[in-house]
Amino acid sequence: MLDYEFLLDDFFIALSGVPITLLVTLISLGVSIPVGFIFAIFRLDKSRFWNKIIGVYVSFVRGTPMIVQIFIVYSSIPVLLKSFFVLLQWDTDIYKLNPIWYAFIVFSLNSIAILSEIFRSALIAVHREQLEAAYSVGLSTFQAYREIIIPQLLVVAMPNLCNATTNLIKATSLGYAMSLQEITLRAKVAANANYNYVEAYIAIFLVYLLLCSLVEYGFKHYEKKLRFYKFGTA
C-alpha cells in the first residue's frame, strides 16, 4: 500500500526544490534567448564560417544525450577553471563550487542550441519582405527588427519556445548527477530512509505536472496577447 502521509510530505519536499529548478530554467533561458537569437541571425546571414561552426555546435547538442553533456561539463569545467585560477593566482577551491553554477552552464549551452534552431525557423517564416518594407520607409535594420520582425517572430516561435521551456524544466531533473538540490533529488533523498520510492516518484510526477501546466498556461496566455493582429487564424 502507498504511504499517503509520506506522499504528502514528500510532495512538499519536492515543491521546495521548485525555486532551484526555476532558477536554473530562468537563467538558462535568460542567457540562451539573446545568444540563440544572435546565432540564428548569424546562420541566416550567408557568412559560411559562422553558419558551419554554429551548425556543428547545434548538431552536437542535439545528437548527444543531455546526461552526457552534463558529465562533459561537470568533469571538464573544474579542470579548465582550476588552471585559470592558478593563472590568476586565486585561492579558490573549485570543488566546493555550488553545483548550480555547473547547471547554469550546461543548461545554457544546451538551450542556446535548441533556441537558435527555433529562432532560425521563425526568422525564415517571418517573411524577408517585411524587412524590405521596413527599409523602404527608412528604418535601420535594428529598428526593423525591434518594430516588425521580432514581434512577428515571437508569435511564430511561441509554441516551440513553450515546448523548449517545459523540456528544459524536465531536463533539470538530471541535475541530480551534479548533486543539484532540485525537485527530483530532494524528493528521492527523502525517500531513502524507508524506501518509499513509489511515493517519491508520484510526488515528483505531480510537481512537474503542475509546474509544466502552469508554464504552458502562461505561454498560451502570452501568445494570445502577442497575436493581437491576427484575425481568424488559429
Partner: peptide
C-alpha cells in the same frame, strides 16, 4: 510593393506613421 507588403502587426495608421515616428 506589388503585394502591398504592409506591416502585419501594425494598424493602418501605424503602418503609415512608422517611417515618421521611428525612421
Amino acid at each position: 510593393f506589388q503585394n502591398y507588403n504592409l506591416f502585419h502587426n501594425k494598424t493602418a495608421l501605424e503602418n503609415v506613421t512608422l517611417g515618421l515616428t521611428v525612421g
